[in-house]
């Protein structure tokens, strides 16, 4: 075999391997559909998505996941509204203001925070935050929306902060210098020049942070309280979609309606996060940063 043929073979083998990610994505869809779609023979898509009652083990069972969707959305929105200001501001501090030494330390802090296993954070929320909330606000339970949102925010901060930081960092030096040369203060330069030019990257960061929060399982499983009902206040318990899957899959009989319904929740969750990721991808490409910014 001559070298030229060998080179071509190597290239195609590598190409094949690089398709693995797409193939896995396909297999995820295949597996979810194979196990989950049969539920829609028993419940209509509309009743499944908009049904108000999730009683999978009752007789007759009812498979309405609307409360679970609401649960997911509410903790995600709450968590994002905590994580975005903290994460973005920390990114600004790291990339624009902090002295070199502190910068390095903070970057490591954020990386280590990203490395904390979700079960550990869930555990922390359960044994530390929950009793504290319960005592302080005199609540029936500390496992509720507020608690879950705070812990989820801690999980989403590293994603938001590190991607925002990359975006801020990629703003060309010339922009900053031009602004300083006009006599602008550092604050004015940051808010009127740097942040606007990094905005697409920051938006991407927010989208990905939300995707992270909506898909996170262990935290909401351990900390959100698990009530499958529409909450009336922020101290109520909820049962987000991932929590339902993780909590119930162990007990659902193989290929029962309940089992299929849990896979169907997986389908909803998958496409929801896929949408978030595609939007993030679209934003980062469509509004590609000026200059050397790439994400």
């Amino acid at each position: 075999m001559n070298r030229h043929t060998k080179e071509i073979i190597i290239k195609y083998v590598f190409f094949t391997f690089s398709l693995v990610s797409i193939v896995v994505l396909g297999l995820i869809v295949f597996s979810l559909f194979r196990e989950g779609l049969p539920i829609f023979g028993k419940v209509s898509v509309k009743d499944f998505l908009l049904g108000m009652e999730w009683y999978p083990t009752y007789d007759p069972p009812s498979f309405g996941i609307f409360p679970l969707i609401i649960g997911s959305l509410i903790v995600t929105i709450m968590a994002t509204s905590i994580a975005v200001p903290l994460g973005v501001m920390a990114a600004i501090y790291i990339s624009e203001i902090a002295p070199q030494g502190i910068k390095e330390i903070l970057k490591s802090v954020i990386e280590l925070l990203a490395g904390l296993p979700s079960v550990v954070l869930g555990f922390f929320g359960m044994v530390v935050v929950a009793p504290w909330l319960q005592d302080t606000f005199d609540l029936p339970t500390g496992l509720n929306i507020i608690n879950a949102s705070m812990i989820l925010a801690i999980m989403a901060i590293p994603t938001i902060s590190s991607i925002s930081e990359d975006a801020l960092y990629a703003v060309p030096r010339e922009f900053k210098e031009a602004s300083y040369a006009l006599g602008a203060t550092k604050f004015e330069t940051i808010t009127r020049v740097i942040i606007p030019s990094a905005l697409s990257g920051i938006s991407t960061a927010v989208m990905l942070g939300m995707a992270r929060a909506i898909g996170e399982t262990m935290v909401v499983l351990m900390v959100a309280g698990g009530a499958a009902a529409i909450p009336e206040g922020l101290f109520d318990s909820v049962r987000p979609m991932p929590a339902s899957i993780a909590a119930e899959m162990g007990e659902a009989p193989f290929r029962s309606a309940h089992y299929q319904a849990l896979f169907a929740i997986g389908i909803v969750l998958f496409f929801l996060t896929l949408a978030f990721n595609l939007i993030a991808d679209y934003v980062s490409h469509k509004f590609r940063q000026i200059g050397s910014g790439t994400l």
């Binding site: 995820i28 597996s31 898909g215 899957i245 899959m249 997986g266 969750l269 998958f270």
Partner: peptide
């Protein structure tokens, strides 16, 4: 990269 970990579990 964005697929939730619980969905990986289901997969």
């Amino acid at each position: 990269a964005g697929v939730p970990s619980v969905v990986f579990g289901l997969f």
